[in-house]
Design a protein around this nucleic acid. Structure first.
Length: 820
DNA sequence: GACCTGCTGCGGCATG
C-alpha cells in the first residue's frame, strides 16, 4: 500500500525527540492515522491525551497541504469529558501540543462554565476542536443549526469512557454518537478508558451496533507499574472494633505514614468520614492546621478549587477526601494514598492507588486502613485481587426510556426529526439495540400527547408533527426543556453560609430542618453554630471548642463487589486449611479463633447460619458474603418465605457479609430447610415482588425517571422546588400512570431499575444458585459471634442516636464478652 | 476489648 503523506509526518514524529512515544501511544497513533476507531486503555498520567491528540494534529497538518482541506470549516474534533474540571487541564495540554506543532488550530471549551462572550464567539465561528461534556453536547443538538455545526466533524474522542459508560450519562453519549455517525458515516470514534473487566464490551458500546468491528482496535498501555498494598495495622487486634466504619482508632499509625510522606491523599468512604478524620487529627495533632485540607462534594466549589490548587502547588501535606478526588486532575505531588475502610471494589482501589507515584519508574503504593477487625480479611483479598488483576465490570445501561424520551424532545427542540430515520439511528446505540416499534410508538405518543393517562393536560403535549417532522414549536416548552436536560437528578441542598458571607457548602434539607438555632455542628472542618435558616440558606457562625453534631448526608449504598466478595469467601476458607501467612491474618487470628469457638468459619462449599437467643428475641444470622444489596433483598425474601410456613414477623438487618432475621419466635431452621427450599430461585421475581414493597421502591425510583423524561419541571435556576413537593408530584404521576395505563414504559422502567440496581437480581440469582450447591451448616450459639455482632450493631444504629448506640454497644459488650 | 457509613457528576431563563 502506498504511504500517505501523513505516514511520513508520523514517522518523523516517532523519530523526533520531542515526544517520547510509549509503545501504546505509537499503536494508537498508527491506528488513528490508518482511519480506524478504537479504545485506548490507559491509566491517568500515562500521556493518553497526547497519544490521540498529536496524531489528530498530524492529520490536520497533513490535510492543510491538500486542496480538500477542511481547515477553518468549523468543528472537526470533539473531545468529550465527564468533568468540567478536566476540561481546563485538557485544554492546556492540547494548546501546548498545538503550539509545539505549529498548527493554526483553535481549541475551545464548551461546558456550563463557558461565559456568554465565548458562547457568542463560538456561535459565530466554532473552534476546530472543542472540549465538551455530554450534557453540553446535547445542548448543541437542541440548536436549530445542529447538523450544520457537525457537518465537518471527523473525530470524536470520549475521555474517561469507563466512568461514563455505566451510567445514564453514558447512554446520553451513545445517543449523541449515533447521531454524529448519521451525520458523518466515516466518523472516527475513540474512547479512553481505565482498566475495567469488560473492555471489549466497552468498545462495542462506544462504537455502536453497526460499526464493523474490524475497523477498530483496543490499545492497551503497558501497565508494568507495580501496585504495592500495605495495611495500616494496630499493635493488637483488640484495638480494632468488631463493628464500625470510621477507623479513627488507627489515627496515630496513619499520621506516622503521613509524616514520612511529602503529600498524602486519605480517602474515606463518606463525607461524614472526612469531617471526623479532620476533626480528630486537628485535635490530636494541631500542627496540621494549615497544611491539611478537606475535599468532598458538599463543600463549596470555591473551597474545593482552593484545595486542588494548593495540592498542585505542594502547599498541603494531607488532603482528606471522598470519591470527589477519584477522577480528574493529575496530582503529581501526591506520593502516598491511604484508603480508610473497604473500597468495595478492586477496580476502585487500583484507581486510587494510581493517584500516587505519577513519576516514571516509581511504583504506586497504597495503604489500606481497616475500620473494623473483619476488614483485615478484605485487606488480604484486595492485595490478591490487585496481584491477579481481577477487575469488576461496568455494565452499560440498557433500555433507558427516560433518557431516550429526553433525547427525542431535545432533537425536536433543535431541528426536529424524521421518526423512521431516528428509530433506525437510535437502534444503532448499544443501549437501544432491542428497542422495538411498539416501544417506539409509545415514546412518540408520550412526547406528543404526554401518554394516554395525561392527554387532558396540555403541559405534557410538547412535540408536534409538522409536515411529517417531529418538532417543538412552543418557545416555552423549548425553554423549559433546555432548563431540565441531563440525567443527573439531585435534591436541592441547603446552602451553608458564614455570617461574613463566605459559603461553606451544602447540607441536606432534612439535616438543616432537624436542627434549631444555637445547635452546634461540624462542617467543612469547622465548628459552627446555627444562627438562622432563611430561603434554603443556613447562616452559621464559628463556635470554637463546643461539643457538636456531625453533619450527615444520606447517600447511596455501595455493596462489596462480587469479585471482592469471592476473594473474601476464599480467604476465610483458606484460613482453615493452611497456616496463616499474611500479617493481616496473623493479627486477626484471635478473632478467627473466637469465631471458631463460638460458631465456625465456613468453607467456600458451606453456608453458615447462626442462631441465638438474646433479650431482644430470636436471631437468625445467615452469611452468604455477597454484598449488602443482595443481603437486603435476600433477607426480605427469606422473611417472606418463612412467614408463609407459619405467621411470623421479622425485623431485618444486613452488612456486606451477611444478614439477620430477628423475631420473637424461635424458628427451627433444620426442620424448615428439610421441608422447604428456602433458597430456591423458583418464582424468584414473583416472590421478590410479593415480599418487598416493590411499589414503594419503584415510586422512589420513578422520581428520577420522571425528571429525566421531562415530566417534572425542577424550577428555574437558583429557585429550586422543594424536595418534598417534587416527591409528591412524582408520586401522583406514578399513581395516575399505573392506574390508567398498563403499558407505561416509564413505570415499567422504574420496576426494572429496582430489580436490577436496588436488589441486584442477577447477582442474587447467582448467589442462590451457589447456595444450592453448598452444604448448610447451622450453629446454635450462646452469644453473638465476631461475624454476627456487627450486624446487630448495624440494626441498632438505624434505630438509635449515636450517643444511645454507644451505651448499647457498651452494654452488649459487657453482656456478651467471655468474662461474664 | 469492640462508636459515629452512606460516593460522584451537569445544566439552564427572563427581567430589570
Amino acid at each position: 500500500m502506498a504511504k500517505s503523506p501523513g505516514h511520513t509526518v508520523v514517522e518523523q514524529w516517532f523519530k523526533s525527540k520531542k515526544w517520547k512515544w510509549a509503545p501504546f501511544q505509537q499503536e494508537a497513533a498508527k491506528a488513528y492515522l490508518a482511519g480506524k476507531s478504537g479504545l485506548v486503555n490507559a491509566p491517568t498520567g500515562s500521556g493518553k491525551t497526547y497519544s490521540l491528540w498529536v496524531p489528530i494534529l498530524i492529520r490536520h497538518i497533513n490535510a492543510v497541504a491538500k486542496p480538500s482541506s477542511r481547515a477553518g470549516k468549523g468543528l472537526q474534533v470533539l473531545w468529550i469529558t465527564p468533568l468540567r474540571a478536566l476540561s481546563k487541564d485538557l485544554f492546556r495540554n492540547m494548546e501546548a501540543a498545538a503550539l509545539e506543532m505549529n498548527t493554526t488550530w483553535r481549541i475551545g471549551i464548551r461546558t456550563g462554565d463557558t461565559n456568554t462572550k465565548e458562547r457568542g464567539d463560538q456561535k459565530k465561528q466554532m473552534p476546530d476542536a472543542l472540549i465538551i461534556t455530554p450534557e453540553s453536547l446535547h445542548m448543541l443538538f437542541s440548536q436549530k443549526n445542529a447538523s450544520e455545526l457537525f457537518k465537518n466533524l471527523h473525530t470524536v474522542v470520549v475521555d474517561e469512557w469507563h466512568e461514563l459508560m455505566g451510567s445514564k450519562r453514558g447512554t446520553q453519549t451513545e445517543l449523541a454518537l449515533a447521531r454524529l455517525r448519521t451525520l458523518n458515516p466515516d466518523l472516527q470514534t475513540w474512547g479512553i478508558s481505565a482498566t475495567i473487566g469488560n473492555l471489549e464490551e466497552a468498545r462495542k458500546v462506544l462504537l455502536g451496533m453497526r460499526f464493523p468491528i474490524e475497523n477498530s482496535v483496543v490499545v492497551k498501555a503497558d501497565t508494568s507499574k507495580k501496585i504495592l498494598v500495605e495495611s495500616v495495622l494496630p499493635e493488637r487486634v483488640e484495638t480494632l472494633p468488631w463493628s464500625g466504619y470510621m477507623g479513627i482508632r488507627l489515627v496515630d499509625k496513619v499520621i506516622e505514614i503521613v509524616n514520612k510522606s511529602s503529600t498524602t491523599l486519605l480517602f474515606t468512604n463518606t463525607r461524614a468520614g472526612t469531617e471526623i478524620w479532620y476533626r480528630t487529627i486537628i485535635d490530636k495533632y494541631p500542627e496540621f492546621a494549615g497544611i491539611m485540607a478537606l475535599h468532598h462534594a458538599s463543600l463549596d466549589r470555591e473551597i474545593r478549587d482552593w484545595v486542588e490548587e494548593a495540592l498542585h502547588e505542594e502547599r498541603l501535606k494531607l488532603v482528606i477526601c471522598t470519591a470527589s478526588l477519584d477522577l480528574g486532575v493529575d496530582f503529581r505531588p501526591v506520593d502516598t494514598v491511604i484508603q480508610v475502610g473497604s473500597p468495595k471494589s478492586i477496580a476502585r482501589f487500583i484507581q486510587r492507588a494510581g493517584r500516587s507515584g505519577h513519576r516514571p519508574g516509581v511504583d504506586s503504593r497504597i495503604y489500606f486502613c481497616p475500620t473494623n477487625a473483619l476488614e483485615l480479611i478484605e485487606a488480604v483479598s484486595l492485595r490478591e485481587g490487585v496481584e491477579k488483576n481481577i477487575l469488576e465490570d461496568r455494565p452499560p445501561i440498557v433500555q433507558a426510556f427516560d433518557v431516550l424520551a429526553q433525547w427525542m424532545i431535545t432533537l425536536a427542540v433543535g431541528e426536529g426529526f424524521d421518526e423512521v430515520q431516528l428509530f433506525e439511528e437510535v437502534c444503532d446505540a448499544y443501549g437501544y439495540q432491542y428497542l422495538n416499534r411498539e416501544e417506539w410508538e409509545w415514546l412518540l405518543g408520550y412526547i406528543t400527547t404526554g401518554s394516554s393517562s395525561l392527554t387532558v393536560y396540555d403541559e405534557y403535549k410538547k412535540v408536534e408533527r409538522v409536515n411529517g417532522r417531529y418538532m417543538v414549536t412552543s418557545r416555552r416548552v423549548a425553554q423549559r426543556h433546555r432548563l431540565s436536560m441531563g440525567t443527573i437528578v439531585s435534591d436541592a441542598g441547603i446552602k451553608v453560609k458564614l455570617q461574613s458571607g463566605k459559603y461553606l457548602g451544602t447540607v441536606e434539607e432534612s439535616f438543616a430542618t432537624w436542627m434549631k438555632a444555637g445547635d452546634v455542628f461540624t462542617f467543612a472542618g469547622m465548628t459552627v453554630e446555627f444562627v438562622r435558616m432563611h430561603e434554603m440558606t443556613l447562616t452559621v457562625k464559628k463556635a470554637e471548642g463546643k461539643k457538636s453534631f456531625l453533619v450527615r448526608w444520606a447517600g447511596s449504598r455501595m455493596p462489596l463487589s462480587s469479585q471482592l466478595s469471592a476473594f473474601v469467601r476464599e480467604r476465610l476458607s483458606d484460613a482453615l486449611d493452611n497456616p496463616l501467612k499474611e500479617v493481616e491474618l496473623l493479627k486477626l487470628e484471635p478473632l478467627l479463633e473466637l469465631q471458631k469457638e463460638r460458631s465456625m468459619i465456613p468453607r467456600t462449599s458451606e453456608l453458615l447460619i447462626e442462631q441465638c437467643e438474646t433479650r431482644e428475641g430470636y436471631h437468625i444470622f445467615i452469611f452468604p458474603f455477597e454484598g449488602r444489596l443482595v443481603h437486603e433483598g435476600m433477607s426480605i425474601l427469606l422473611a417472606y418465605r418463612l412467614s408463609r410456613i407459619k405467621p411470623i414477623t421479622f425485623s431485618v438487618a444486613m452488612n456486606d457479609y451477611g444478614f439477620e432475621l430477628l423475631s420473637d419466635q424461635y424458628v427451627n431452621m433444620e426442620a424448615v430447610l428439610k421441608d422447604t427450599d428456602l433458597f430456591s430461585t423458583k418464582h424468584l421475581v414473583d416472590d421478590i415482588y410479593q415480599s418487598v414493597n416493590a411499589t414503594e421502591m419503584a415510586k422512589r425510583k420513578f422520581r428520577e425517571i420522571a425528571s429525566i423524561a421531562g415530566l417534572m419541571f425542577q424550577g428555574y435556576p437558583g429557585q429550586n422546588i422543594k424536595t418534598r413537593h417534587l416527591q409528591a408530584s412524582s408520586s401522583l404521576l406514578f399513581n395516575v400512570m399505573t392506574k390508567y395505563e398498563s403499558n407505561n414504559l416509564l413505570v415499567g422502567q422504574a420496576y426494572q431499575e429496582v430489580l436490577t440496581y436496588q436488589l441486584e437480581e442477577v447477582r442474587m440469582r447467582n448467589a442462590l444458585n451457589r447456595i444450592a450447591t453448598q452444604t448448610i451448616r447451622i450453629r446454635q450459639t450462646e452469644k453473638p459471634t465476631p461475624f454476627s455482632f456487627p450486624i446487630m450493631v448495624d440494626r441498632l444504629r438505624e434505630q438509635l442516636t449515636s450517643e444511645k448506640l454507644e451505651d448499647r454497644v457498651q452494654k452488649m459488650i459487657k453482656q456478651y464478652s467471655n468474662a461474664d
